[in-house]
Amino acid sequence: MATAVEEGLCGAWGVSTWDPRALPGLVDAGLPRPAVLMVRAGLLVGIDVLDASETLTAQWGVAPEHVWGMSPFGGDVADPVWGQLDPRVFIEDADDVPSALQAAFRAAFLLPEVGRIAVGTDNPAHLQELISALRFEPDAGKLRTYQRLLRDRASSQAD
């Protein structure tokens, strides 16, 4: 793929992975670096996948603006979890956020840190709702605490 870019056959190439846990052990300095890395993102992603995504991003030296997140709702905005969880707690000025889905979408930009989020929808109103969520700021401190709690839980379950 790197040769294809050099020869002008394509503009860029990337790697997309649903589960990056095995990849950090395979990356070395001899491998070409992708222009884009796409990983799962969001509140429903396990800490092992989040940590592997961050490790892979660092190993390849991919800047956050070239890391894309996918599936910020765990695959289904109709999942009952979104009616039981209020992710607005992870947004600065949470009282201004009209919906839990907007908050979940915006928080996904820091779980792990990504520059873009890819979503699939055939509903223009849903897409507009997500676009309007970009004006809200995630609370980085609360999201770091959330990740620490996930790590603590994972390590206590491993014991």
Rank of each mutant, 00 (worst) to 15 (best):
W82L: 10
D79E: 02
P72Y: 13
I91H: 13
D95Y: 04
D95I: 04
A104W: 00
W68K: 01
G115H: 07
R106N: 13
A125S: 01
E92R: 15
R116L: 13
M70R: 06
A107R: 07
L110G: 01
A100C: 09
D122Q: 02
P98T: 06
D79K: 10
I117R: 01
H126V: 03
E65K: 10
W82D: 05
H66T: 02
V119A: 04
V114K: 05
D95W: 07
G69H: 07
D79H: 15
V81Y: 06
N123K: 08
S99R: 10
V67C: 00
D95A: 15
R88W: 12
V114D: 03
F109P: 05
D76E: 02
D96V: 14
E65S: 07
D95P: 03
E113K: 14
A100G: 15
A103V: 13
G69A: 06
H66G: 08
D86F: 10
M70W: 02
P112C: 06
D76M: 07
H126I: 00
P64K: 06
V97A: 02
D96S: 14
S99E: 12
L111C: 08
F109I: 13
L101E: 11
G120V: 09
I91Q: 09
P80G: 08
D93V: 12
D122T: 09
W82F: 15
S99D: 14
G115N: 06
V67N: 05
P87A: 15
D93H: 11
A103K: 11
S71D: 13
P64D: 12
D122V: 00
D96M: 08
Q84L: 13
